[in-house]
Amino acid sequence: MEPLRFIAEDGARADPFPLSPEELTRGYREVVRARVFDERALTLQRQGKLSVYPPYKGQEAAQVGAALALDPGDWLVPSYRETAAALACGLSMSQAILYWRADPAGWRYPDDLRVLPFYIPIATQLLHAVGVASAGRYQGEDWVALTFIGDGGSSEGDFHEALNFAAVFQAPMVMVVQNNGWAISVPTEKQMRNPRIADRAAGYGIPGVVVDGNDLAAVWHVTREAVARARAGEGPTLIEAVTYRVGPHTSSDDPGRYRSADAGAAWLARDPVSRLRAALEGLGVWDDAREEALRAEIAEEFAAAVREADAAPEPEPQQIVEQVFETMTPDARAAWEVLRRG
């Protein structure tokens, strides 16, 4: 199975092409927004203004393309790598900054946002996505749950259990595996014998699709089809988005210890952002002036987000024992008093 692709590395569009120029422009905007956030977040981290941060450079199209396939009312269940998907689903940049600052002010998302928090334990959230997906059917809702995992995460038992549960219950869930080549330092060929993760869908009796993860149009298209199937009661889909983790695993990681500097050099030519811009230019709907305006707008959005995040109240020690149970236990109440006194 070759990865499905609609935009070539030079920006040439396949015919027929699945997205309208307006959709492609909207997708480009979100992809650039994601790229800018990621680069600046990493800088903030180096300045000591974020805690550990997992960058996603090179994977913007895989995340944004899938996220844009959702309708309002659908759910996003991300791993820790999916800040780009969360932003595309409506998480504000200031909230994302506070989240990665590990500030409690960033950890309560707005009540109307159906985005679950980022998850550290690998693949565990996939089962939650299946449950969230099924829950709608009991409430007369037709929502779909979109969840993400990586190539490394596909080795976990919960990956298997989630796909099997989703298949057996025909849950309206779409799972995107971002096959980015690396699980921290372990390359895909040491992770699995068959590197085509989408092949595994057959084992669960569900559709599996492999797509060029650096092609926003392709990811958006296959996810949109999968979401439509899920919403129509036709069950889950496994999507493998083939991409590449250009940067480190997290801000604490040094890829120089396990891969050569030119590893993945070929992937730079497949960059999802420049490829998409070339496609837009080919359509005649993009130019330098538009690019400059977009970049300026996003730079201002980020700067405003930093200002807003910096204005968040200082966390207070007693917050540690708040929100453990709805009603504070006697022990927690005693601890709260101790912490409040400082």
């Binding site: 565990t124 089962l127 939650h128 449950g131 969230v132 829950a135 057996v168």
Partner: peptide, 24 residues
Amino acid sequence: RVFDTPLAEAGIVGYGIGLALAGM
């Protein structure tokens, strides 16, 4: 409303967590 699951305990608990998160 009363159903069998596949034989997988992590699946049972994780699936239940998801159901609970979304209103069940």
